[in-house]
């Protein structure tokens, strides 16, 4: 019984992380119609920033507040200086850009010393100008909040799952499955699907250690065949 409880709690915690990541993803998709492939990389950066901040300050709550802020800044910069530039070229280019960004962050993390990242990011403060009421700013804000959410998830994930260069890839697919199952752009769908997949992941490891991943994919395949727009998605 105690063991089951542990698995249940672990599933719940993972569901929380998944929800943080996928809600940012689905928020950006729902409002800007851009799927951010670099989203999980933001999550990973959040974890790395948190690790560095915790190392210097030794304060958990400060870390939890600061890491998402840094990610928000980064998200705003990415929107302003990269994403907005390719918007006119169309959808495919926006996806290509975020995909390329994910690749760069992935390779960058393997390389750069953590301390360097933190210093560079703290010195940038373009966030001050980011408040206004026109559409480009709203987009920047949305994108930045999305990045902040994934940063928060990353900071929280460190103690639970560990910090390593592969952590982006492993949550990205799960987060994608969440938004496919829940319905793209639907926050309610993301809640339900996160809970579902968190538990499926956790108990999958307990019951079928070799096929825990297959369970998640089977769920996704089922949804694709029966309701391709997702549980809460709108029919296109």
């Amino acid at each position: 019984m105690g063991e089951l409880m542990v698995f249940f709690l672990h599933g719940l915690a993972y569901a929380g992380l998944l929800f943080l990541v996928s809600s940012g993803l689905t928020l950006v998709f729902g409002m800007m119609n851009v799927l951010n492939f670099a989203h999980a990389s933001f999550y990973m950066l959040g974890a790395y920033f948190a690790l560095a901040i915790a190392h210097y300050t030794n304060q958990f709550w400060l870390t939890l507040a600061l890491a998402p802020l840094l990610l928000m800044v980064l998200g705003a910069l990415v929107e302003r200086f990269l994403l907005r530039k390719v918007h006119v070229l169309g959808h495919v280019h926006e996806l290509l850009l975020t995909f390329g960004l994910a690749y760069i962050i992935q390779e960058g993390v393997k390389w750069i010393r953590i301390g360097i990242i933190v210093r560079a990011a703290v010195n940038d403060s373009a966030m001050v100008n980011a408040l206004g009421i026109n559409v480009p700013y709203v987009f920047m804000g949305v994108f930045s909040v999305g990045a902040g959410l994934s940063g928060l998830a990353g900071a929280a994930a460190g103690p639970l799952l560990g910090v390593f260069p592969g952590m982006a890839g492993s949550i990205l697919v799960d987060a994608f499955v969440v938004i496919v199952v829940g319905g793209m752009g639907s926050l309610g769908g993301a809640v339900l699907a996160s809970l579902l997949i968190g538990q499926l992941q956790s108990f999958g490891v307990l019951l079928f250690p070799k096929f825990s991943l297959a369970l998640i994919y089977m769920l996704m395949a089922l949804v694709l065949v029966l309701k391709p727009e997702g549980l809460f998605g709108e029919k296109s």
């Binding site: 998709f29 119609n33 799927l35 492939f37 959808h91 996806l95 890839g169 990205l172 697919v173 994608f176 499955v177 938004i179 496919v180 793209m184 994919y217 996704m220 395949a221 694709l224 065949v225 391709p228 296109s236």
Partner: peptide, 19 residues
């Protein structure tokens, strides 16, 4: 499996299948 999926969901699902 991907017959009815287009656009962004298509891009996302191809990645998921690759994974």
């Amino acid at each position: 499996l991907l017959l009815r999926v287009k656009g962004t969901p298509f891009a996302l699902l191809t990645l998921a299948f690759n994974a």
